[in-house]
Amino acid sequence: MNIVVCIKQVPGTTEVKIDPQTNTLVREGVEGIVNPFDTYALEEGVRLKERFGGVVTVVSMGPPQAEAALREAISVGADQAILLSDRAFAGSDTLATAYVLSRAIARIGDYDLVICGKQTLDGDTGQVGPELAQRLGIPFVAYVSKVEAIQDGQMRVQRLIEEGHELMEAPLPCVMSVVKEINVPRLPSLRGMMRAKGAQIPVWTARDLDIEADRVGVAGSPTRVIRVFFPQRTRKSQMLEGTAESQVEQLVERLRETKLI
């Protein structure tokens, strides 16, 4: 059972504060971490390998610093890691990212399952997984919360939707995205950390992957950010005063005025 896990390095917090004086971003102390959702993907990959044997390969597309995220993945049980990095990839949107990942996975070749996180903290779209599945021409199962069985080339899983859990069967190979409910990621072991330190992490570039230049980076991304701005906080906050009774009374009054109750 060969498994590929896709992880991304993201800024360490969504706590991007805004400097009230200059109305600009304060980014101090923000360092790169493994996208939290991807830690569940990684853990599930390692667990499935422990159950069924095989190799867990972690891939990440990003700048050279993303190597740190890959080492972290090795420290918690991934067998090997590959960094997909090239100036040409910079500025890729989800469609272009999925294309690069699909080229890399095709090159890895012999795989049974690709696991993604539910979404990233920064991109926050959850689109890379399904777009990748489409590019690879294999099925996609979103929001998996439990892998029940893998047998005869079929995988039986539960997935979380609004109304509850769906029980699904999908043929391998396929791509799945996982939610937090699926497991509790382990901490790195001492041996893992040693391995991570010494591991060779190959870097694959656009040339290694036979990438068509106009399908990646800014040129290959149909979407374009044309403006960024800080949201206006239009909400006025009001603290209700007085005794508990009077506060409750005021609240009910206000909610009634706005016809919410």
Partner: peptide, 23 residues
Amino acid sequence: ATSLGRSFIPRVAAMLETGLTAD
């Protein structure tokens, strides 16, 4: 952007090679 929309709309976007903006 429901669990259903989020899981198959990106596939349609990839089939059509077009852009998709989430949420």
